[in-house]
């Protein structure tokens, strides 16, 4: 009896050592450095809050993350809701169209958007050939381009989460409502929406947390002009070597993400949605 359990516990050791030594330790070191680099104390955090550039970066990050989250969850809900009402064949095709971008490299997707949106890109040249506009529009390397790229990146995640949640809802409730004379709009607002709130909350949480610390798409589609936290940190470690700024900003980001996830997991509905998520 004891022997079996000991062997089982021993099996967990190698992965645990990797997680502690190569994940927990380096991240704890970031936290430690933020308090000790260059000297012990909270001075880094004081200068962080006084730094106007950091303030602008935080505002941009919040603006883009909130816009991305609202647009992504709204659009994904419309798609997921339509998919669960489709026939099996159409549903397979739609899910294929969702999974394709899901599995395609984030770099390829950012590159596609640059190709489409830049000044001499596909969209601008088509619009100019058609005579709709006379000078090219600035569609990328700004807030607009970053948000479009991020919504496009986040939508497959959100659709799959919402689809899993919506397919779990008992359809007999809607049949009952219909047999009692409820109209489609009433059924949606009074039954579908309240029952899918846990799924919506989960998707909102995921998209918002991912957006806050996202590097690739904002960096490529913002090109330094729309600067978000992750890219700002990356500049501090790769070109200016400001470890005090990089580590204290990383710690703040980690703290914010931790608080959001912790607060969300305290809500029973959300925990249920998280745990009872069926296999995709």
């Amino acid at each position: 009896m004891r022997n079996f359990k000991t062997t089982a516990l021993l099996l967990t050791v190698p992965a645990s050592l990797v997680a502690i030594g190569l994940y927990a330790a380096p991240i704890l070191q970031v936290l430690a450095l933020s308090l000790t680099e260059p000297k012990l104390g909270l001075a880094n955090y004081q200068s962080l809050f006084a730094n106007a550039a950091v303030g602008r970066v935080v505002m941009t990050t919040l603006k883009v993350s909130v816009m991305t989250t609202v647009l992504t969850v709204l659009a994904s809900y419309i798609v997921a809701f339509a998919i669960i009402h489709m026939s099996a064949g159409w549903r397979r095709i739609s899910l294929f169209l969702v999974l394709m971008p899901f599995w395609i490299s984030v770099l390829v997707r950012a590159f596609s958007w640059i190709t489409i949106l830049r000044r001499r890109g596909v969209l601008n040249s088509t619009l100019m050939d058609l005579g709709i506009i006379s000078t090219p529009l600035d569609l990328v390397y700004n807030l607009f381009g970053v948000t479009i790229g991020m919504v496009h990146y986040m939508m497959p995640f959100a659709i799959l989460l919402l689809y899993a949640n919506l397919s779990d809802i008992d359809r007999r409730i809607m049949q009952a409502a219909r047999s009692l004379g409820a109209r489609p709009a009433t059924i949606f607002w009074r039954i579908w929406l309240p029952l899918s709130l846990p799924g919506i909350a989960l998707a909102t949480l995921f998209v918002f947390v991912f957006s806050l610390g996202f590097l690739v798409t904002p960096a490529l589609l913002g090109a330094g002009k729309t600067l978000m936290i992750a890219e700002y940190i990356s500049v501090q470690i790769s070109s200016t070597s400001r470890w005090d700024l990089a580590t204290s900003l990383s710690t703040m980001l980690l703290l914010v993400v931790g608080i959001i996830v912790f607060a969300a997991m305290r809500s029973p509905a959300l925990r249920a949605a998280f745990v009872a998520r069926p296999q995709q």
Binding site: Y23, V30, G213, L215, I233, W243, S250, L253, V257
Partner: peptide
């Protein structure tokens, strides 16, 4: 946790290590 913690934070730690 690497699925939730932003990878940029991990990058800062790993560059140091």
């Amino acid at each position: 946790s690497p699925m939730i913690v932003p990878p940029i934070i991990y990058a800062v730690g790993m560059v140091k290590l």
